[in-house]
């Protein structure tokens, strides 16, 4: 092998700092030892194709268990929690948050081993993460759950399709390269310090990559959910879509006369419309609307109907050799008062 005279500063730092005997420190083991006692095995009834088992973990010493919601919890009359010492408890569902896909259970016990929610914002891509849970209910009773290691890949929205259970999770989630398996969901995802940085999500196939994505709900938004529950605040109301009598529109005519699957070319911008005033032009190809990628005319309409009338939104368009960002006001074109603006066919 070719050796250069200049030794990389980084390699040097490791060479000096990590002369550890092979039988010595193991950062994985330390983290696992710290977090594993708080991991809980959850059992319910099998509901259709959804397995009747999951994982969770104690977030408070007085029996609060955090996990991820699934059909099992809505269909099972009883959820049994088995602690790391093998004790079994009946649990009570206390609270759920559909926008996070999170669920909080409570058992009647005290002085339990627990793991508080840590800081997910400080996680850097490339950091090790360890998934603790009970895939395929391999462990039972006092058996320790499984630990699986991988790296934190980055944060990204899930882009779940409308029919997926995860569709409500619109916050960016933690993407992991550790394999996820049935039953491991709800278990804690910890860093090398054993801090909980997230909660493992259910098995999910990304429509973008057509691969199984291993993801976790980040711990930061879960903290507020947990605190509200402990403070006894009212459960949040599921956010509803725009009112039925509102039809948000940009008043842009797309070239979708033949197929909504055609690229989103602007066919016409009505003279005097806010979009025209903002500088949108015929033949612009829309690449992005409201921060979301637009593949075709249908994609444009999907995003358009969720916009808020009265606000402004940004379009990214390709015009000739340029990519332009254009801000356009969103208007309401629902048929009330004066006639609706001319619109592409629906």
């Amino acid at each position: 092998m070719k050796r250069a005279a200049g030794v990389s500063a980084l390699a040097l730092a490791f060479a000096l700092g990590s002369r550890v005997p092979s039988s010595g420190a193991n950062d994985f083991r330390d983290a696992i030892d710290r977090a594993m006692p708080a991991v809980v095995k959850l059992y319910g009834a099998k509901a259709g194709r959804v397995a009747g088992f999951a994982s969770g973990f104690l977030v408070r010493p007085d029996g609060w268990i955090l996990t991820v919601d699934s059909v099992m919890f809505t269909q099972s009359p009883r959820i049994t929690a088995v602690l790391s010492d093998g004790r079994e408890f009946e649990s009570e569902i206390k609270r759920r948050d559909p926008s996070l896909g999170a669920l909080l259970l409570k058992i009647s016990a005290k002085d339990l081993p627990f793991r508080p929610l840590g800081n997910s914002a400080s996680l850097k891509p490339g950091a090790w993460v360890i998934l603790l849970g009970n895939p395929f209910k391999l462990a039972s009773g006092a058996d320790p759950c499984s630990a699986t290691v991988g790296v934190f890949s980055g944060t990204a929205p899930l882009d779940a399709p409308e029919d997926a259970l995860e569709k409500a999770i619109r916050i960016p989630v933690l993407l992991l390269d550790a394999p996820n398996n049935p039953g491991a969901y709800g278990g804690p995802v910890v860093n090398l310090d054993g801090e909980v940085v997230g909660v493992e999500g259910r098995l999910f196939t990304s429509p973008l990559t057509n691969t199984q994505v291993s993801f976790a709900i980040p711990s930061d938004p879960l903290k507020a959910f947990l605190e509200d529950a402990l403070a006894g605040k009212a459960e949040p109301v599921a956010p509803s879509g725009p009112a039925p009598d509102v039809r948000p529109s940009l008043r842009v005519l797309l070239f979708d006369a033949v197929s909504g699957k055609a690229p989103a070319y602007v066919d016409a911008v009505p003279r005097g419309s806010p979009a025209a005033a903002a500088g949108l032009k015929e033949n612009d190809l829309v690449l992005e609307l409201d921060g979301q990628k637009v593949n075709d005319c249908d994609g444009f309409r999907q995003i358009e109907k969720r916009l808020r009338p009265g606000a402004k939104t940004a379009l990214k368009v390709r015009r000739g050799d340029q990519i332009l960002r254009i801000e356009v006001p969103v208007v309401d074109v629902a048929p009330k008062g004066p006639g609706p603006g001319k619109e592409g066919k629906k």
Binding site: L16, G24, N26, F28, G126, W128, V151, L192
Partner: peptide, 22 residues
């Protein structure tokens, strides 16, 4: 800089993590 993060006797795993992140 190596001096910026004086990790006291880190295990091999921490060293690897820093490599990935860096």
């Amino acid at each position: 800089a190596p001096s910026a993060a004086p990790a006291p006797a880190p295990g091999a795993e921490r060293a690897a993590e820093r490599v990935f992140q860096d």
